[in-house]
Amino acid sequence: MMLQERTQETAAGAALVAQTNEYLTFRLGREEYGIEILKVQEIRGWEQPTTLANAPDFIKGVINLRGTIVPVVDMRVKFALGEARYDQFTVVIILNVSGRVVGMVVDSVSDVVRLGPEQVRAAPDFSASFDTRYITGLAAVEDRMLILVDIEKLMTSADMGLVEAAVH
């Protein structure tokens, strides 16, 4: 439903999108993050992926998403946040970034928030789990603080090793 509304808004005008954005928020360790909801394709439960050869340990493997082979990364492992447990509560956010489909394991998905430009502040140089290069800003929603992440930039970066150029 939300996605549909969002898409209609996009069609209505780019200016509007620039002003108000919807973010999917999720928890990683003790921090709460927000990613643009337009990059999110769906949210799934955990299933055991097929292990890939010679892959770093945060790349859990590949799954069959209705006929498409999709790699799954575990952000908890990547950023060494707590213990990575896999049970019926583990969620995988399926992202659609740069024309690729990627699954991302996080601790939990919270909700979807709508943020106006006045709520978003530039990110100070602080220590988050993510490199500040991928952080677009901070947002305060009631008493929560969200770290807004450019998930497309992060997922296609050399750090993640998901795309060809990153290997070399």
Binding site: L52, A55, V62, P71, L162, E164, A166, V167
Partner: peptide
């Protein structure tokens, strides 16, 4: 199916 659609080339 190509692995490279959403991932990269894996040797082997």
């Amino acid at each position: 199916k190509s692995l490279e659609t959403n991932y990269r080339k894996v040797p082997g």
